[in-house]
Amino acid sequence: AMLGVAHGGVEALAVLEKLKPDVVTLDIEMPRMDGLPTLKHIMIRGPLPVVILSAFTKETSQLTYESFKYGAVDVCTKPVKGELRDMEAQRQDLRDRVAEAAVVHMDAAQYIRRAKRTAAASSPEAGPLLSSIEEGTPPSRLVVIGCGAGGFPALLKLMFAASWDDPSIVSVVCLAMPQRVIDALLPNLAKDSGRRMESVVPGIVLDSGGCYLVSSDSCYHLVQEGSGVKMEQATTREDPLRPLDCLLGSASRSLGDGITAGILSGVGDDGLEGLQTVKQPGGCVLVLPPPACLKPEFPRRVLQTVSAEEVQTVTDMARLLWSPKRT
Rank of each mutant, 00 (worst) to 15 (best):
K157C: 00
H41M: 14
A1H: 09
A55T: 13
L294Y: 00
R196Y: 04
S54G: 13
C174G: 04
V285W: 03
V143A: 04
A292D: 09
Q90Y: 03
Q276C: 07
A108M: 08
V143K: 08
E88I: 10
M106F: 05
A1I: 13
Q90K: 00
V306I: 01
G71K: 11
L158G: 03
V15M: 13
C211A: 11
E134F: 14
T235Q: 08
V314F: 03
K116S: 15
P139S: 00
L206R: 09
K18M: 01
P243M: 09
L275Q: 03
S307I: 04
I42G: 06
V80G: 05
R91G: 11
K191T: 03
K20C: 07
V103C: 12
T236W: 00
L19S: 12
S123L: 09
E309A: 10
A99D: 15
L288I: 10
M159Q: 13
V73L: 08
Q280G: 08
C293M: 11
L244S: 02
A234F: 09
V285D: 12
L129H: 11
G271Y: 07
K78Y: 11
R95D: 15
L213W: 01
K58H: 11
A72F: 09
G35Y: 01
L158V: 06
G249P: 02
R113E: 12
P290K: 11
S54Y: 14
A251H: 14
E310N: 11
S67Q: 05
P37L: 04
A120H: 15
C284I: 15
V205D: 02
G209N: 04
V143H: 05
I133E: 00
A120N: 05
